[in-house]
Write a protein that binds this DNA or RNA. Structure first.
Lengths: 220, 220
DNA sequence: ACAATAAATTTGGTGAACCAAATAAAATTG
DNA sequence: CAATTTTATTTGGTTCACCAAATTTATTGT
């Protein structure tokens, strides 16, 4: 009876999936090590083991890729993570920028039935509080068609449905300016000079940098 | 960034608390090792470390005792465990004999705010699904006054409020015969020969061994 | 092509939590 | 009280996830 839990493999797979999802072309040992903030030697060893287990493949050019088996496992973790985030926000009234750390722990709880019951309890949500889709039991996910706010048409009601990146800093920034998933906004003006953008939200106007507008995704 | 979590100390403390709670007089290394199903050498080393941290004291006769500090930590784990059990049973509709294993994992999630929010979300329950009291934030617990069913008066409506032991086997047995915390029963007859007891429950009569009747605790 | 740079890999270590087996100390029992 | 049995403790190992510092193997710019 070990009184500690190894989650490392799950974290490697999840991180590989995240990179793949972000369309990072060539995920090599260096990239993965940086993403995980781990020593390359450590990551190399872990990749070897996962490769033996057919969870990842190392291509001739050293690119590390998830196998279907590995991706399925990764999506299972992503599923758990996102469902717990919904729980924390919807049921325990956490703010969306506070839940990541806790969900990182909850995602590793092992119990086949737990995830399914949790999902039903939450009313079968399809997206997490950041607008990211929740994979189904088999690991499939419905990608939502979105468009960066920076490319959306002017003077039209738009709904923010997801974020291009859910970093803590960005979430806090959004909180500060009062924007969140589900918010209705309208592009009022785009500044030619720096592509900054002014939007209308709840009768007040907000100016966003092009970077921010690129990261806010609206329904297409 | 370690991708695994050490819960061992929490488990040692919790187990020590359980033994103390069960009024096991002399908890020595052998007793603790058996309770944890670990090698005595392992436990000895762990006790040494906890002793350095002033979580336990080893008496002259080798009895291992929790310090106030250690007991407080242990009660924190017990609190989390019992709150999660309530969540699993009340919200996710698990049966009370299915939740222990999952709660054992959930109890180690670290986030100060989580336990308090969970408690509020569950409506500040005072007992878990097995009738065991839930310690408050500071580690205090209200002990419920109970009496074994075997010693309760005859022909009087009694409410089962707790169990003397929550082993899987016992929980399953109770499930099978249809008894649970909150059930109202009445002692109809006690057999002189073997002290087995016949009770009335929802209009049907159930015969229990003395052992079972001893383990069912009714409100005093 | 070749030196500079970067990435991959190897080597040798660490600490935590575990174990089996040997030994020492203590308790029990005839 | 001496012999047996039970406990406690020590010793030497293991595995896992990690690291730092070489070393080897690309890659790249000139």
């Amino acid at each position: 009876m070990q009184h500690f839990a190894y989650h490392s493999e799950e974290n490697y797979l999840k991180t590989l999936y995240k990179l793949e999802d972000k369309k990072v072309k060539k995920v090599n040992n260096t990239a993965l090590s940086k993403a995980l903030e781990l020593n390359p030697a450590t990551v190399l060893e872990a990749v070897r083991k996962m490769s033996e287990k057919k969870l990842v493949t190392v291509l001739a050019d050293k690119t590390i890729q998830l196998t279907d088996k590995g991706r399925k496992k990764a999506l299972q973790i992503v599923r758990r993570h996102r469902l717990w985030e919904v729980f924390l926000v919807d049921k325990l009234n956490y703010k969306w920028d506070e839940v990541h750390h806790i969900a990182e722990q909850l995602e590793h709880i092992e119990a086949d039935s737990l995830t399914e019951r949790l999902e039903a309890f939450l009313g079968n949500p399809t997206v997490d509080p950041h607008g990211d889709p929740i994979p189904d039991e088999s690991g499939k996910l419905k990608r939502i068609k979105t468009q960066p706010l920076s490319e959306a048409p002017w003077n039209k009601k738009l709904t923010i449905v997801a974020l291009g990146n859910s970093s803590d800093e960005f979430l806090k920034y959004l909180n500060k300016i009062g924007l969140s998933i589900g918010a209705t906004v309208e592009v009022a003006e785009v500044e030619d000079f720096d592509k900054s953008i002014t939007i209308l939200h709840k009768k007040s106007s907000i100016t966003l940098s092009n970077e921010a507008a690129n990261t806010l995704l609206v329904a297409l």
